[in-house]
């Protein structure tokens, strides 16, 4: 389980996350909505442990362990992984090698690459000259090898072309054990019990909801988690009346 308690985060002198409380239970996937600049990426980077995101108060607990002060690699070792929006290029490191580095044990990178239609990129340097959509597939490929328990996705759909979008959606669903197809092959209760993976997905378009059976939607507005609701409902509300209106409306009801 991921537990975030009263988390406050600064970059430099600027407060970017205010009193965040969030719980993601094993088997749960949450969708994170919010306008540009509301702090969504910052929240993901803070959970991953990027040191420029300074935690000034509160705690992050993962699998019962306080990870508030743990460095990035120790969080990764504990089972946190992230799909980045704009990861850096690593010159001279082949994607194939990167996949092996991500995996704790030997993996067959060709088989994994096939899943995200990425075989042709294995001998290219990591992220070197990749388009937006290629980066997303490369990130997914690395997560497939890493197989973390908590996965943070920063806009996994942005830049992905029509041809690959359903592939990306389905791969995320299977990583998170949240595919609609899986649910049909086994009794529902069994599927639910088998789920252990946790997910937190930033999306603007909501496309991911077509593939991933998300449990909750969260709206981050001005550094605060301002509402928790059914993700489809949030999407509709934001689409119709915008974030400001949506947050006001739901706060009033609460």
């Amino acid at each position: 389980m991921l537990q975030i308690e009263d988390l406050q985060v600064k970059i430099g002198d600027k407060e970017i996350l205010k009193h965040i409380d969030l719980e993601i239970h094993p088997g749960e996937t949450h969708i994170l909505f919010g306008p540009n600049g509301s702090g969504k990426t910052s929240l993901l980077m803070t959970i991953m442990g990027y040191p420029q995101y300074k935690i000034t108060a509160g705690k992050i607990i993962f699998k019962g362990e306080d990870i508030t002060d743990l460095p990035i690699d120790e969080r990764a070792q504990l089972g946190i992984g992230m799909s980045f929006q704009r990861p850096p290029t690593i010159n001279g490191l082949k994607t194939r090698q990167m996949v092996q580095l991500c995996a704790k044990d030997e993996v067959d990178e060709e088989t994994l690459a096939k899943k995200v239609n990425f075989e042709g990129f294995l001998d290219r340097d990591v992220n070197a000259g990749f388009s937006g959509g290629e980066i997303k597939r490369s990130e997914l490929l690395q997560l497939l090898a890493q197989n973390p328990d908590l996965m943070l996705f920063d806009e996994p759909e942005s830049g992905v072309d029509m041809e690959n979008i359903s592939l990306v959606g389905k791969t995320i669903a299977s990583l998170l054990q949240k595919g609609f197809l899986d649910a049909e092959t086994k009794p529902k209760i069994q599927t639910k019990r088998d789920r252990t993976k946790m997910g937190l997905i930033i999306t603007h378009t909501g496309f991911i909801l077509d593939y991933v059976a998300a449990d909750k939607g969260q709206v981050l507005y001005d550094g605060m988690l301002s509402c928790v609701s059914n993700p489809h409902e949030i999407l509709n509300c934001v689409g119709e009346s915008g974030y400001e209106e949506c947050v006001r409306c739901i706060s009033t009801i609460n």
Partner: peptide
């Protein structure tokens, strides 16, 4: 940081780069 997020220690990440 990127390589560390994949589970490499800081030293491993540096030497890989």
């Amino acid at each position: 940081a990127y390589l560390m997020s994949r589970g490499l220690t800081e030293d491993e990440a540096t030497s890989t780069i």
